[in-house]
Amino acid sequence: MSVSLLKAIVLVLPLFIPDNRASIVLSNDYDSIFLPVVPGSLPAIENPQNNETFSSVLGDLNIIGTMGLRQISWDGLLPNTAGKYSWCLNSTVDATTAINFIRKAQLSYKPIRVAITYANGSEYLNMLATIDKFTYYADNVHDFHYSIGLKEYRKITTEGSLTS
């Protein structure tokens, strides 16, 4: 294969390989933040279904129930200084800003929106959620490590239907 043909393939190849870099955005009515570090593996989305099993004279029966609330959780890193690491996706958010945003959202008693999207625009997740768990600690270089757990929040509309 000639060098020029190989160069052409290398230049065109990125057009056919999707950009799989993801970002996580947390937002509410008044603000939003891009988390600077996305976990290496995107968090699993739990999709429970509220099925019921009961015993009868015919034996055990399984009744299919309604869909439960989706849940998602992950552990992450928040650099103490914005732009501290060149590999961070967003160099404008530091640990204090992110922690204050999450704590303020918890104290507002309102849901937040969590959106996990790829650079090519496709969505991994986009849902309203409550913050069920948020813990964090500082390490010896003053970066913060955190763990967050979110549960889907469904709004009841005036027509009696649910939205998320």
Rank of each mutant, 00 (worst) to 15 (best):
S2T: 15
V3R: 03
L5K: 11
L5Y: 13
L6G: 06
I9C: 13
V10Q: 09
L13K: 14
L13H: 10
F16L: 13
D19T: 02
R21L: 09
S23H: 00
I24F: 04
I24K: 07
S27T: 02
N28D: 12
Y30K: 13
Y30C: 12
S32W: 00
F34V: 10
L35T: 06
P39C: 04
S41W: 05
E46W: 01
E46L: 02
E46Y: 00
P48H: 03
Q49S: 13
N50Y: 12
E52A: 15
F54S: 09
F54W: 07
F54E: 11
S56R: 03
D60K: 13
L61N: 14
L61R: 15
N62A: 10
I64T: 13
M67D: 15
G68W: 05
S73W: 02
W74F: 08
G76L: 04
L78P: 05
P79I: 08
T81V: 10
G83E: 05
K84Q: 12
K84I: 11
K84P: 09
S91L: 07
T92S: 10
N100Q: 04
N100M: 01
I102H: 07
L107M: 14
L107T: 12
P111D: 03
P111R: 00
P111T: 02
T117N: 06
Y118H: 01
Y118G: 00
A119R: 00
A119F: 06
E123K: 04
Y124L: 07
I131G: 01
I131A: 02
D132G: 11
D132E: 13
T135R: 13
Y137V: 06
Y137P: 02
Y137H: 11
Y137M: 05
A138V: 08
A138K: 10
V141R: 00
H142M: 15
D143W: 09
H145W: 07
S147H: 09
G149M: 06
K151W: 10
R154I: 06
R154K: 09
K155S: 12
I156A: 11
I156P: 03
T157C: 14
T158Q: 14
T158N: 15
T158H: 12
E159V: 09
G160V: 06
G160D: 08
S161W: 12
